[in-house]
Design a protein around this nucleic acid. Sequence first.
RNA 1: GGUCUCGUGGCCGAGUGGCUAGGCUGGGGUCUGCAAAACCUCCUACAGCGGUUCGAAUCCGCUCGAGACCUCCA
Length: 491
Amino acid sequence: MENKLHIYNTLSKKKELFEALSPPHVGMYVCGPTVYGDPHLGHARPAITFDLVFRYLQHLDYKVRYVRNITDVGHLENDADEGEDKIAKKARLEELEPMEVVQYYTNSYHAAMSRLNVLNPSIEPNASGHIIEQMSMIKKILNSGYAYESAGSVYFDVEKYNENHHYGILSGRKVEELKASTRELDGQVEKKNSFDFALWKKAAPEHIMRWPSEWSDGFPGWHMECSAMGTRYLGEQFDIHGGGMDLLFPHHESEIAQSVAANGKMPVRYWMHNNMITLNGQKMGKSLGNAVSLEEFFTGQHPMLTQAYSPMSIRFFIMQAHYRSTLDFSNEALQAAEKGFKRMMSAMQILDKLRANAKADESVNIGELKNKCYAAMNDDFNSPILIAQLFDGVKIINSIHDGKMKIDEENLASLKDLFMTFVVDILGLKDEEEAAGNDEELSSKLIDTLISLRKQAKANKDFATADKIRDDLTAMGITLKDTKKGTDWSF
RNA sequence: GGUCUCGUGGCCGAGUGGCUAGGCUGGGGUCUGCAAAACCUCCUACAGCGGUUCGAAUCCGCUCGAGACCUCCA
């Protein structure tokens, strides 16, 4: 398979041909969750976006090391919380050990991701487990002269860095403009400039999460963990760094500055950013109070939801939009996605039983469809186009099933392979109904028996009995479909 | 206030200087004892105003509207 994958690089603001630094290996780092709350729809978007990237790169035979961190220290609250660590704050409220909170929400994040069929990353490091790496990187930055110590904290000297390098290379921000905007933040007086950011922060007495260092008892700054862990597991330079667009500035901008200051080189070749999910046109986020948790989606237990939405419906919904577009949530849109998803799954079931019905010269050709599928994915992981192409495949499957289209052995094999590859392996979609029943063989036999009884009734023009069988099965959630060849059924 | 993004048919959502996106919904049809499904078909849009062009929804400018970031959030 010729590799013509193009990726939109936030750094250059355009699509670039993807070339791995040392093929066949690819290093990918994605900013993971801060584990202080239930996973919500917003967590699903980057996880699914980069799951798609991970799956597709693997499909292209790259050996991918995918690192997705767990942030469990160091994110400051700035409003009413007086700089108290986010995890520590939660721990205080619930009177739990901080690591207990971390463990609890890590588990619930994992459970949700698993239901969304998001593959586990290769490495999932915790920030709290890499304090030593972070301190050592801070020392390197101090040695290179781009950081200064002040009152037990260490700050990055943005102005000095910008004399020799370019702070703003990723986000397009200019230091002069940053200077103009004044911000009243904790620790402002200790900093040379308001836009300098903490590499190490001295802990206030009430701050629970703290580690001893040569500067103070404290904790690493907001952006250190990703730089330190990325370097540790993927090297000073690696291929892809992903995350939400909201992390572009200052998080990723500062990561670049830290790495350049410490290691003297740009850490990442391709920066990828997924867009936000909006709810009634507004960004979904914890602080806005409009975040619907994934569990609430799965159960439908939320005033905003008119029904429950299965994990695969959510996954399908997210992948029906391109990852760089905002995606507006509504019940109507999610229901449309659910129906579309079921239509695709039902076609997959039919495909499984399909037989070739033609010779080569009168068969549909699957080759072109396959090329279009690869073209979609190679164009910056364009999953909505891919799904549109696959629906063309659905139409082909149904038409063959209805006897309105013909296919030979070779193309049928190719069609089956196409759906397995793109739907199951790359999009990561799976039929949820099938997994539900464990004694499906018995059910299947029972239903077949009922269908044959109904067939007899129909032959005797006893439609009352025939309809009763169908209605009763419908009430149990089993749908019968009469076709020329007989009766199909599905849950 | 600064930086940036976006504005597509009933809804969601792709794409593009001239050629069908797709899904959902609604109308019509085929099939069927009926139904469901499926298939065929119709509803054919690109915020507004100018400009560039043989031709723009697609490029440029302005206006209006929405959103993101600048401060924790994916």
